[in-house]
Design a binder for these strands. Structure first.
Length: 400
RNA sequence: GGAGAGGUUCCCGAGUGGUCAAAGGGAACAGACUGUAAAUCUGUCGUCAGUCGACUUCGGAGGUUCAAAUCCUCCCCUCUCCA
């Protein structure tokens, strides 16, 4: 097959390419004309805290860039006002313009840790949607039928389950598909759940007499809980902004059954590597050790080798050897007597008195290594004291 | 516009006048165990209260009652069928 090497790279951590033939044609054309392909990825600036799940398609864009192609990031400042209904069973609240601008800037900051800036074009939907009239909008809408949309899982499920579904949400795929026309995309990236939207883009391009884009669909990354899709609302995500220690720890917290999955989609390991790891697991190597390597690799990708080393050491100290971490937040107090629960709450370790009390009663709090079992414990504070609340929360009391 | 169903604690979901701070599940947190922040088991899971008790919560606002998530009135929102 022609472009075997390229296709292999493109297929890495990808679920589906629709249609594969189309991609080969595109590569061929690009090689002939010397014009890079335009690789589109739409982003809704509904938030700015990116996690590893978001980055799967982003890293795919980077693969294309490494092959010399042009990334085109579309900031969905219009679609963000709708909220992508895909995979959602609820209408999203719309965002203000300021939020959108702020989010998209933070977004790009993070993306440039992966993408090559010189090969990245950033476009806002406002460019083409800002000046549209109702007439134009109606024209776009006429390209699709209700039946077509109701065949789409998300819409059908929402409808059949009797959940609310706003008219504006039906607009989402329409807008996204016109983006492809506006930027003349050759390839559109996205998670598999984007298949419908991206394929709509192909239709739209055809209506506008353009060559049709190819969909390159990335798998959806499972969250650290091992069950649900990685997402903010479930608190099962590893964020780009997480500290090296947190990233490391969060990787360690994934169920062992997720190791291969993460090597594939979070660490972007190559095929041979995956095979080697599978073999190791089969031979009975402690999954913990393999997870440690995985965690190290992920941390060093986003930070550095040195930081990954440190995170690994900190993890061993804190969890394997149960030692106190080197760094922890400090809380200043004057000498005197304090009720322990008050310290826990005032310092922010616990949210409420009740929570602090329960934590103590559950045996989760210790002062200088000694477990405290009485909720009304009074602490006589003089010099440095270390309070531990639960597995991960530490506090050093220092003199005010 | 007409007829019906429904809005419960972080989520799902029971609960139709007192025994309800509200079953059950999930999530989360903690403990035990494990050289994993895995798995498993156990506990906790509205706020305040040195723990008797007080206060706030069941879409919103009023009302009935000694007593309401549960009854009444109006309003808001969602869904279904009909137009």
């Amino acid at each position: 097959m022609r472009f075997e090497k390229e296709i292999k790279l493109i297929k890495r951590a990808v679920d589906e390419i629709v249609p594969l033939e189309g991609l080969i044609d595109k590569l061929e054309k690009s090689e002939k004309t010397g014009k890079p392909l335009r690789i589109k990825l739409g982003i809704d600036p509904t938030g700015y805290d990116l996690h590893l799940g978001h980055l799967v398609p982003i890293r795919k864009m980077r693969d294309f860039q490494d092959l010399g192609h042009q990334g085109v990031i579309i900031i969905g400042d219009f679609t963000a006002q709708i909220g992508d209904p895909t995979g959602r069973d609820e209408t999203r609240p719309p965002l203000t313009h300021e939020q959108i601008m702020y989010n998209s800037e933070r977004y790009m900051e993070q993306l440039y840790t992966i993408l090559i800036p010189e090969q990245t074009e950033v476009r806002y939907q406002t460019e083409w949607f800002g000046g549209m009239t109702l007439h134009d909008v109606l024209q776009l809408l006429s390209k699709f039928t209700l039946a077509q949309f109701m065949a789409h899982d998300t819409f059908r499920n929402r409808y059949e389950q009797g959940l609310s579904l706003g008219m504006h949400e039906l607009m989402y795929p329409v807008l996204q598909s016109y983006d492809s026309v506006a930027v003349e995309s050759d390839v559109e990236l996205g998670a598999t759940e984007q298949k419908f939207n991206i394929l709509c883009g192909r239709d739209m391009q055809r209506y506008f007499g353009q060559e049709q884009q190819v969909a390159v669909l990335s798998p959806i990354l499972t969250g650290t809980d091992g069950v649900n899709k990685m997402g903010k609302s479930l608190n099962n995500y590893i964020a780009v902004f997480d500290t090296p220690n947190d990233k490391y720890g969060k990787v360690m917290s994934i169920p062992d059954s997720l190791i291969i999955n993460y090597y594939n989609y979070a660490a972007f390991a190559l095929e041979d590597e995956i095979k080697a790891i599978e073999a190791e697991l089969k031979q009975g190597v402690n999954p913990m050790l393999i997870k440690k390597r995985l965690a190290h690799r992920i941390v060093s990708y986003y930070h550095s080798d040195a930081e990954a080393d440190e995170a690994a050491e900190a993890f061993d100290r804190q969890f394997s050897q149960r030692e106190v971490p080197e760094e922890m937040p400090e809380y200043a107090l004057a000498s005197g007597e304090y009720r322990l629960t008050n310290i826990l709450v005032d310092s922010g370790l616990c949210k409420t008195q009740g929570e602090a009390k329960r934590l103590i009663q559950g045996g989760g709090v210790s002062v200088d290594g000694e477990r405290i079992e009485t909720w009304d414990h009074v602490l006589n504070f003089e010099a440095d004291t270390i309070i531990r609340a639960g597995k991960r929360r530490y506090l050093k009391l220092v003199k005010a």
